[in-house]
Amino acid sequence: MNRSIITGQRLAAIFLLGCVLFNYPLIALFNKPGEIVDIPLLYFYLFGAWALLIGLMALAIERRKE
């Protein structure tokens, strides 16, 4: 595999972003009763952030130049 340095750094940055998104204190912000489009707030937030991470990783991987 082409060990492109910039791709590795992008993925590492996504990893760090995920560490922040999935941890205290950010999840505490959403850890309360309430709903967005009929879906509980925390549930919506976690899956949204999760999907965002996967999207970013796909972008980093598939758009790299080999």
Binding site: M1, T7, L11, I14, F22, L42, Y43, L53
Partner: peptide, 23 residues
């Protein structure tokens, strides 16, 4: 409740480091 999720969030995060570690 939502407590089942970390088991799957962890691998998602780790996948970001695979480029270095797993490779």
């Amino acid at each position: 409740g939502i407590g089942f999720l970390p088991i799957y969030l962890g691998p998602t995060l780790m996948a970001g480091l695979w480029w270095y570690v797993m490779l």
